[in-house]
């Protein structure tokens, strides 16, 4: 033998999965939502997505080199962070702000914690919340620019649907519109105002389905998340239908679908046990609804997920599976 044989510890077989492949699958799953965003917001969507992706990848590469890490950007995780951050921005946001958010997400929230695998918080969400707190006006200005004319006629515009509801309840004490089949369809296909990635629940669900099939996510977090939101909003709605919209609205409006399918399921920042995932998803749902109903912001998905990220290690610890054989030992 001219070449030396490879010797390693068992196992000598591998499923063939890789971090890069998982990331690539997530990117593929994001394509329908990117298409919907581009359809709804046109140039602004392309502008923000490319700005965020480029800024994320560049800052990942530079900071890794600077911190002397041997990993490059080829694991594609920075691309996902970029896309997801862009998805969480309003279409009219200036490019430079998107870049600032991207650099913050990658350098502060990811690389300073040790890089891929070590960040406690979802970098894209942390970037978004930083922007939201730093530039509240820009981050909550919803232009109707770019919404294609045929859909714009009946589009729920000028503010996000959740914003409309919140303002109306606060000022008049009444709901601004009724939620019926027509509005549901509007929200479902992507005819609403909001951040560029959250417009179309249908596109997001399609991506989620792909990730489920490719085993990038398991059903536990999205189902627990959406289920809790449904339950919570159903209780409110049944209790007081004049003040609360029905669960259908809560499911389809705002960033819930994006959050439940793509953000809360981020592997690094969510629990590893199945039971933990259920707890995590339920916690996200509860916090989201608390913010939506009683919080200062109309939407609470980002805050809910970030808060749950913080308790992920705790959830992992609390939901540690019972070791096989951890039973009372019969005397032998």
């Amino acid at each position: 033998m001219s070449e030396l044989a490879i010797v390693s510890s068992s196992p000598h077989a591998h499923s063939g999965s890789s971090v890069q492949r998982i990331m690539l699958d997530v990117i593929i799953a994001l394509v329908p939502a990117m298409a919907a965003a581009t359809y709804a917001f046109g140039w602004d969507a392309i502008r923000l997505i490319s700005a965020c992706v480029l800024a994320c990848v560049a800052s990942e590469g530079v900071s890794r080199k600077w911190m002397g890490r041997d990993l490059g950007v080829e694991d594609l995780s920075a691309v996902i962070t970029g896309i997801l951050l862009a998805f969480n921005l309003p279409p009219s946001l200036p490019t430079w702000m998107a870049v600032v958010g991207s650099v913050f997400a990658i350098v502060i929230c990811k690389q300073l914690f040790g890089g891929i695998g070590y960040n406690p918080f979802n970098p894209a969400l942390a970037g978004r919340v930083m922007l939201l707190i730093s530039f509240p006006v820009f981050m909550t200005t919803w232009s109707t620019w770019g919404i294609p004319a045929p859909l714009a006629v009946d589009a729920i515009t000028t503010a996000t649907p959740l914003g409309l509801v919140k303002t109306a309840i606060a000022t008049t004490g009444e709901l601004p519109f009724t939620f019926n089949g027509a509005t549901a369809l509007q929200l479902f296909v992507g005819n609403q105002n909001g951040c560029i990635g959250e417009v179309s629940a249908a596109a997001l669900l399609l991506g989620g389905l792909y990730m489920l099939v490719r085993r990038c996510i398991s059903w536990h977090i999205p189902v627990a998340y959406l289920g809790t939101v449904t339950l919570f909003s159903a209780i409110l709605w049944l209790h007081h239908p004049q003040q609360n919209l029905n669960p259908g609205f809560h499911l389809l409006a705002g960033g819930l679908m994006l959050g439940a399918i793509f953000m809360a399921t981020d592997m690094v920042t969510s629990p590893v046990t199945k039971r933990g995932m259920l707890v995590f998803g339920a916690g996200c749902g509860l916090l989201t609804m608390l913010v939506r109903k009683w919080g200062g912001y109309p939407e609470g998905v980002s805050f809910a997920i970030l808060l749950m990220n913080a308790v992920t290690p705790l959830i992992n610890r609390a939901t540690r599976p019972r070791v096989f054989g951890a039973v009372k030992k019969k005397k032998a």
């Binding site: 890089g115 891929i116 690094v268 629990p271 590893v272 992992n316 070791v323 096989f324």
Partner: peptide, 21 residues
């Protein structure tokens, strides 16, 4: 690479251990 906490090892462990941790 560093662990990305995907939890697959936890899911497949026949002894129900948490190999990641």
């Amino acid at each position: 690479m560093p662990c990305i906490s995907c939890g697959r090892c936890v899911g497949v462990c026949p002894m129900k251990l948490m190999p990641n941790e």
